[in-house]
């Protein structure tokens, strides 16, 4: 049951975008259209889950035995960058269809701070391998949820009479702020945890 709560907490209560304020670049950048938001979400889910697992392995079997905690950020960045590259190459060859959906988003994910943040959080929360994978998966689901919701709202914003000073990014940021407030409501779920 606690595994379920790991996911639930990552998706709603501690939503990576709205509560942890991570991964804002793609959140603002790739949320103009619903279709691209879905693609980005799927690609991030894929990579983030892998990155969480791989980072755990590196941390647990490489850094911890040699007491090299201070190299954690550096080595995680290297691992994540390599995973993204590797994933792209493998997908490109093995599944052209999947590559068509995710292809152009994969390189963008390297710069997604949530992908680095979640493995680091895994370590500080002391999660094991399965928990790390679930936490990574849940967080990226939360990211996808936020992205899809936000893209749907922004598609509607295009038709709205926004005051000139607020057009474009300002109204998007205000919207994100309101959504963030709304997600705070999920903090009430805490009592079941």
């Amino acid at each position: 049951m606690s595994y379920f709560f790991v996911i639930l907490s990552a998706v709603l209560v501690n939503n990576v975008v709205f509560v942890r304020i991570l991964g804002l670049c793609p959140f603002m950048g790739v949320s103009k259209k619903l279709s691209t938001a879905v693609g980005m979400g799927a690609a991030t889910t894929f990579v983030l889950t892998l990155a969480a697992g791989a980072s755990y392995l590196v941390d647990h079997y490489l850094l911890a035995p040699f007491e090299l905690d201070y190299l954690r950020t550096l080595s995680f960045i290297v691992v994540i960058a390599a995973i993204v590259q590797l994933t792209e190459l493998v997908i490109h060859k093995t599944s052209p269809l999947l590559h068509q959906v995710l292809g152009i988003y994969l390189p963008l994910i390297t710069t997604n701070c949530a992908v680095l943040g979640i493995p680091l959080l895994n370590v500080s929360l002391g999660y094991g391998l399965l928990e790390s994978l679930l936490f990574g998966f849940g967080s990226s689901l939360g990211f996808t949820l936020a992205l899809v919701l936000f893209a749907s709202i922004r598609e509607r914003l295009d038709g709205a009479d926004v005051p000139i000073a607020f057009r474009g990014m300002p109204i998007a940021l205000i919207t994100a702020g309101f959504m963030s407030l709304a997600f705070m409501g999920f903090a009430g779920l805490d009592r079941f945890n």
Partner: peptide
């Protein structure tokens, strides 16, 4: 040593992939 090993392993994996999964 650890960082070099990590870099070598990842580099080798990427290099292998770049050749074998070339499209």
């Amino acid at each position: 040593i650890v960082m070099t090993a990590l870099a070598l392993v990842l580099g080798a994996a990427l290099g292998y992939a770049a050749v074998h999964f070339k499209v």
